[in-house]
């Protein structure tokens, strides 16, 4: 077994286990920490696939910025206790069964896709910053700039939503 294959299995196991822990841990803070671990595992997969730029972005944006934001909100609302009320057992069972059957059905649908092979090592350089940046700032410059407008509006939206309403009484 090649080293990359070993790494693949380790990362896969880590990702799935952490994801299960995200869903099952009672404390929201623990969930966030497990989720960071999932993202790290996914970053590892990106590196294995030689998608270096995405690996870095995933690390910085997801595992860094977004998860810190989650943590911040949880801390802010003081939710880091284990007292979350649970849904009824039957409902949770139905949820697990339907999730499992979704997985089953999707696997059944996609399992015949086996003809193609995915190389782990660095042939080609599409995942490198040079290639991606080149394409992004030539062909995709307009969507790129538009995404800045999206950010601006998201920012404005967040400020408007998060602002304490002074004039109108809270609902």
């Amino acid at each position: 077994m090649h080293i990359t294959e070993i790494l693949f299995w380790i990362l896969t196991a880590l990702a799935l286990f952490s994801a299960l822990m995200v869903v099952s841990s009672d404390n929201p803070v623990h969930s966030v920490l497990w989720l960071i671990l999932v993202f790290m595992a996914i970053t590892g997969h990106y590196i294995l696939m030689n998608a270096q730029f995405l690996a870095i972005v995933n690390m910085i944006v997801y595992a860094g910025a977004i998860m810190v934001l989650f943590l911040f909100v949880i801390m802010f609302m003081n939710l880091n206790k284990d007292s979350e009320p649970q849904k009824s057992v039957w409902l949770r069972l139905a949820a697990v069964v339907s999730g499992g059957s979704l997985l089953l059905i999707l696997v059944a649908a996609l399992k015949d896709n086996g003809g193609y092979i995915n190389s782990m090592k660095g042939e080609g350089s599409i995942g490198l910053i040079k290639n991606l940046g080149n394409t992004l700032f030539t062909e995709y410059v307009v969507p790129f700039e538009i995404s800045s407008i999206l950010f601006l509006s998201a920012m404005v939206g967040a400020v408007v939503l998060g602002k304490k309403e002074s004039s109108t009484p809270a609902a």
Partner: peptide
């Protein structure tokens, strides 16, 4: 080193299903 793309599909589907179960 060769890894079938199916493995990635299954990994992705598993994560997705776990996400759904979490939402539910």
């Amino acid at each position: 080193p060769i890894i079938p793309v199916n493995y990635y599909i299954f990994l992705s589907l598993a994560l997705f299903a776990i996400g759904i179960v979490g939402v539910l």
